[in-house]
Nucleic acid binder design. Structure first.
Length: 523
RNA sequence: GACUAAGUAGCUCAGUCGGUAGAGCACAUCCCUUUUAAGGAUGGGGUCCUGGGUUCGAAUCCCAGCUUAGUCACCA
């Protein structure tokens, strides 16, 4: 009891420490009292990794005879003067055999009897030196000759156990997993791989774009005007400038300014922010890769997307076929290409390409798609596509030629009235990218912005605002340009077969954590 | 925003009809020199999410709230 008082006083804790937390703090102090720093400063030389040893030693048992390895204690079985410990390093786990007279060759058995047996716990980080051997039970292990405390853990670790494929005490509570991702990564190390795959995905994309000679750039996140997408922004304030700033919702307009400036191709991996709903496909901050290339059109960009995504699949899976939920998706080139009208005709048997607004509305009624009077021709077409086609497009498919009303930054179609040169790639029933032949006619762009302002006046909270500086840039002349946006999180979900965006973000947005303090609201 | 489900020990979870709060692991003590879900024995550990109500008595029944998850809606 005096420990509780002591530690709650010393650490000024608002909540009482658990018995285990107190005992571990005590242990750390006792280690110190023995002249051992539980948090030593010098580097610890490591010359092997767990999985490397487990793979190579059975093939050549002369290897690893002077091994030095470090990791976190995940289990401990003390049997008198000999013990077994499992440590986990960055790649896996390996068993240690710790024998008293080996780590304490002299009369002084303190290191084993006191430090190892009494003061170390699951969760502590240690380094060991020794040689690799195989136990009588046939498990490749490290015979420890020297043990160093590297970091004392003062909070008990939830331990997941497994036998014969059965998982015991799985740490699966999604809230805890996301809030305490570090803990998730410790006790559920299989999830480390998802994030490694995400990084390989990004690196593959970056290598691909660099090989093509495009320039990776950085553009502002804090912007006086937001633009480039239809979304509600986050608003903030700069004190010195005494001005409102917005967190970017897309980087399109800045990258196009750089094309005006004379670069042939620019791209950016950008964190974008949208002040909208959250669910398993939406996090308030997310990552996009946007690419703009001069003198190209949208057909050219389809080829680039195919090539790039196919290469990503190969980099991650060594094959173009990827398991996503129930489906196996084959990213092998070439992908199917349908115009939006063709796709609708393919799935409904109805040709809407020459319909006027009234006929479209009638078609919606026939297909049981709810409409309202605010919907114009473009919106009606988009609704029909979304309801009848999108979820059925499992294998990668380009859908192109969109209604102009939905695409205020895309160039008018070279031959088809009322459409723009835009495509999306859809797979597993979800959009994975969005691209245009970019609108470079400054007069047309100004008119499109004005149309957006009208929508805003009618209460559309996601309509675009007029960006006078962007128009000024276009007025100096932008070459014909093809632009692309790929949602990195969505692509990562697909490539790692993850059910939720929270599974491909280390730290997904959560509500502020409620601390378990006394309830204060008696109102 | 709607609906459904959940909230009990550090972790994973039981808890019968409303009658003293349970298990495994973790933790402590003891035993044990090659063990395997973490060897054996013993033991400590609880704001049963919060507040109110019904009742002699509530983890359990009722009401309200909070938190979380899932699905749908909205939203690219």
């Amino acid at each position: 009891m005096h420990f509780i008082l002591k530690y709650n006083d010393v650490f000024n804790m608002s909540t009482e420490l658990s018995e285990q937390e107190i005992l571990r703090r005590e242990a750390a102090e006792q280690i110190r009292a023995l002249g051992i720093n539980p948090y030593p400063a010098p580097l610890y030389e490591v010359n092997a990794k767990s999985t490397e040893i487990l793979e190579k030693f059975p093939l050549d048992n002369t290897l690893f005879q002077e091994v030095s390895i470090a990791g976190r204690i995940m289990s401990r079985r003390v049997m008198g003067a000999a013990s077994f410990v499992v440590i986990q390093d960055s790649v896996g786990k390996i068993q240690l055999y710790v024998k008293r007279d080996e780590i304490c060759p002299t009369e002084d058995k303190t290191m084993y009897n006191v430090v190892f047996k009494k003061l170390l716990d699951i969760g502590d980080i240690i380094g060991v030196k020794g040689y690799v051997f195989v136990t009588q039970m046939g498990e490749t292990s490290i015979h420890v000759k020297e043990l160093t405390v590297l970091s004392k853990s003062i909070r008990p670790l939830p331990i997941v156990k497994e036998k014969d494929g059965v998982i015991y005490d799985a740490f699966t509570n999604p809230e805890q997993r996301y809030r305490q991702r570090y803990l998730d990564l410790i006790v559920n190390p299989q999830y480390r791989n998802v994030f490694i795959q995400r990084t390989i995905l990004v690196n593959t994309m970056r290598d691909f774009l660099n090989e093509k000679g495009y320039l990776e750039v950085e553009t502002p996140i804090l912007q006086p005007l937001y633009g480039g997408a239809a979304a509600r922004p986050f608003k903030t304030y700069h004190n010195t400038l005494d001005t409102t700033l917005y967190l970017r919702i897309a980087n399109e307009l800045f990258l196009k300014r750089l094309i005006v400036g004379g670069y042939d191709g620019v791209y950016e991996f950008s964190k974008d922010f949208r002040n909208e709903g959250m669910d398993r496909f939406h996090n308030p901050e997310f990552t996009q890769m946007e690419l703009y290339v001069a003198y190209k059109d949208y057909f050219w960009m389809m080829d680039i997307v195919e090539e790039m995504v196919e290469r990503i699949a190969l980099a991650l899976h060594k094959t173009t076929k990827v398991q996503v939920g129930e489906n196996i998706i084959d990213f092998k080139r070439p992908w199917k290409r349908y115009t939006m009208f063709e796709a609708i005709e393919h799935f409904t048997g109805i040709d809407i390409s020459n319909m006027d607004e009234a006929a479209l509305r009638e078609t919606c009624k026939k297909l049981n798609i709810p409409t309202d009077n605010s919907m114009g021709k473009g919106k009606l077409i988009d609704e029909i596509f979304g309801e009848t086609c999108e979820s059925k497009l499992i294998q990668p498919t380009f859908i192109y030629d969109y209604p102009i009303e939905m695409s205020p930054l895309a160039k008018k179609h070279r031959s088809k009235e009322g459409l723009v040169e835009r495509f999306e790639a859809v797979c597993n029933g979800k959009e994975i990218c969005n691209a245009y032949s970019e609108l470079n006619d400054p007069i047309d762009q100004r008119e499109r912005f004005i149309d957006q302002l009208e929508l805003g006046k009618r209460g559309d909270t996601e309509s675009m605002v007029l960006d006078e500086d962007f128009l000024r840039a276009l007025e100096y002349g932008m070459p014909p340009t093809s632009g692309l946006g790929i949602g990195i999180d969505r692509l990562a979900m697909m490539m790692t077969n993850s059910h939720s965006i929270q599974d491909v973000l280390f730290f997904p947005q959560m509500k502020p954590e409620k601390h378990n303090t006394q309830s204060t609201s008696n109102e």
